[in-house]
């Protein structure tokens, strides 16, 4: 980061900034502010979770047993690994190792895809048992009248998180294509940096979701 200098010569320098450093700082700050809005966005669902968990603590313990802790754990490791590789992609950019940017982004995309595949099998397994959200709930393995609410929350929160993972994959495919064209180097890697920030947030949200749903039994 030290070597941002006062260059205004990069082809990606936008005219309304004074220099590349201002452009980089603005982009980074914009993403941080956006991440705050994301936390509030998920915050509504976390608040709903807290309310229902306080009302029906025994339901959450019972229903949580239906979730597969092993695969949830595997997914946690996969996602933390992808956060590491995206950080490595940024470091590669800072060190001007253009090939490594693409490699690390590629690994990140692969790990994110693995996460989604595991998620897919978890969801379809539950659909198979009749565990649907809300009024479509048709599973009789849990002896609690509000079991559908737990799974509504489960599907909403993991679903919204899943949408964020898919958006992240899309962003990183775009970054991968750009990095293969050689757009990023130690002078200019703003999109890699701010997508990395976004990806860490997606990771952190999962780190909260995993214990709140899978580990409470």
């Amino acid at each position: 980061m030290a070597n941002h200098s006062t260059s205004t010569h990069s082809q990606f320098f936008q005219h309304h900034f004074v220099d590349a450093e201002q452009q980089f700082d603005a982009a980074k700050m914009g993403m941080w502010v956006f991440l705050v809005t994301e936390i509030l966005f998920f915050g509504g669902l976390f608040a709903a979770y807290i309310v229902y968990r306080l009302w029906y603590p025994e339901l959450f313990v019972m229903a949580s047993e239906e979730l597969n802790t092993l695969w949830g754990g595997v997914n946690t490791i996969v996602l933390i690994g992808s956060s590491l590789t995206v950080a490595m992609a940024i470091k590669s950019a800072q060190l001007n190792q253009k090939r490594n940017i693409a490699i690390n982004l590629g690994i990140t995309i692969a790990l994110a895809a693995i996460f989604m595949v595991i998620k897919y099998f978890e969801w379809t397994h539950k659909f198979h048992l009749g565990i649907f959200p809300g009024e479509f709930y048709a599973f009789d393995g849990i002896d609690h009248p509000k079991a559908n609410v737990f799974f509504s929350l489960y599907y909403l929160m993991t679903g919204l998180h899943g949408i964020h993972v898919v958006i992240g994959i899309g962003l990183m495919v775009w970054l991968l294509l750009r990095s293969m064209k050689g757009h990023f180097d130690s002078e200019y890697y703003t999109p890699v940096e701010i997508t990395g920030l976004y990806w860490h947030l997606v990771d952190i949200i999962w780190i909260f979701l995993f214990p709140l749903f899978y580990l409470i039994d």
Partner: peptide, 10 residues
């Protein structure tokens, strides 16, 4: 989907 977070009937 009738998720029932706000609906007392659910």
């Amino acid at each position: 989907l009738g998720i029932g977070i706000f609906d007392p009937a659910l």
